[in-house]
Design a binder for these strands. Structure first.
Lengths: 135, 135
DNA sequence: TTAACGTATGAGCAGTTGTGCATATTATCG
DNA sequence: CGATAATATGCACAACTGCTCATACGTTAA
């Protein structure tokens, strides 16, 4: 468990304290993995587009394929990824499969990230983010 | 621009309407890419841990390496990724490099995602489709 | 039944990613 | 100066990812 850390940094005692306190706030491993998995799922342009598109209304696979500009096969593959992550669900109507969002958090996540992106694009890094545009 | 879509689905006209309205809400490509990039950056367990750890206090590379259980080289590599994404910053103090969070949004993003993960773990899907087995 | 359509899935491939190893860089100490 | 410590970086490699292609599945129409 605790290995000697005399060989780590020169202020090894403070080091250990830092590591310990940092370890406190770390989520358990399974949560870390789930977190990373969610983000990784969102970390693909195609899937971001799918989720944005589905935030308006349900769409069938061929609609999405056309919108995305990729094959219906690729679209189906991506939808399966999103389905496995419980981010979308689908209903069958005849031969068609209509997909829709299956998660409320995801939209907030994307909107929050979008805010970040938009800030960063225009005038990122003020000084310390002191009153970005407070009047 | 508009290609014939008579070969897509059978209700091609409705299809086109759906695709059009969906296209409306899609962010411009560069924003989509930035979004995906941010999420992809967050989509790795090691980096999630780094960000969680740094949410408490700044840490040096060797602290982080110890906390993560990976080499200091790998840690440095990951910190560079986070640095490039402007998610962390660092200050040099002698030979040490102390890293800290450089973004306010990220913490909210992670907390929001954590909520999602925690809901999903225990009693996922209770919001929308209650009574799935209702006739 | 056969045929066509919309979708799903497995295989394979090119491109990417995270890590360790070796080495370079920078700073402190003697 | 040289030696050592803390960090950074180039390279290599295994693992993974997203796509296309081929094919299978389920539904509808004839």
């Amino acid at each position: 468990m605790e290995r000697k850390d005399a060989d780590v940094c020169e202020i090894y005692y403070v080091n250990e304290a830092h590591v310990q306190s940092a370890r406190q706030v770390l989520s358990p491993d399974r949560e870390i993995l789930s977190l990373a998995e969610i983000f990784r799922t969102l970390g693909d342009p195609t899937r971001v587009k799918v989720l944005q598109a589905l935030s308006v209304e349900e769409l069938c696979v061929c609609d999405l394929a056309k919108l995305l500009g990729i094959s219906e096969s690729a679209t189906s593959h991506q939808l399966r990824v999103l389905r496995n992550q419980k981010l979308v669900r689908f209903r069958k109507e005849g031969k068609m499969a209509f997909y829709s969002l299956d998660d409320a958090h995801i939209d907030s996540l994307m909107k929050e990230a979008l805010r970040h992106v938009r800030e960063g694009a225009d005038q990122y890094r003020g000084t310390e983010r002191v009153r970005e545009s407070a009047g």
